[in-house]
Amino acid sequence: MSVAYRPGETVFHRLDPRTKLWCQVAIVAAAYAYTDPLPLVGLTIAVLVALSVLDLSPWRILATMRPVIVLLTIATVVAGVRIGSPWFSLADASETGIAAYRVLLVIVVGFVYVHTTPTRASQAALQWLVPGRIGRGLAVSVGLVGRFLPRFQTTARRIRDAMAIRGGDRMSLHRRIAVFGIVVLAAAVRDADRTSVAMRTRCLSWNPTLPSLSFGRLDYLAIVLGLGLCFLAIRSLL
């Protein structure tokens, strides 16, 4: 199971979503700009502190990332393999290994936002970031995705179970994809058509009642911290 939003009173929950988005971008920029192991140790400590504040187990987080970890481990090994003597370059493998570790940290930084920010607050931040009807359309669409997703997932699970009972596992891969895709798409379209009729009947407006956003003292502090990280990232590139 992936990381999802949980209500709380931590410092990360109290931050404005716009601040958290900005800080994520700044942290990712700094993480990619500095390729030495030492800054990564600093980021690792920061991430562990954040997880501890949020009462999230690092092991549980790593378990949700198993497929990514498998892929990154293979990438690290393949990066070191040489055709011919000495057959394996530890320097190349460690370079990719450090980069792979940085990717894992960057993903966890994103999880902190996901765990502490409700979708509606993110929608409000989106509307602030992208002004006008485009932003409002984007916020409405993302809201609809959030509404459709659990329903479509339930439908998809039901279809997979039904296929397994009827011996679908013995079908070829492309046949399985086709059968599954047809039934899921047909069910999703019928669901969406009903939603569309309901939304038109209820007169959807361009003025949604999203939560109001405001910056506090903590936000200004975090924004300055983000600016510092961005400055360091730019300086390292010059």
Partner: peptide
């Protein structure tokens, strides 16, 4: 912004 839509139900700017 956090909906579990990326590969294997993951989400976040970090994945992006």
């Amino acid at each position: 912004i956090g909906l579990p839509v990326f590969s294997m139900g993951q989400s976040g700017i970090g994945v992006l």
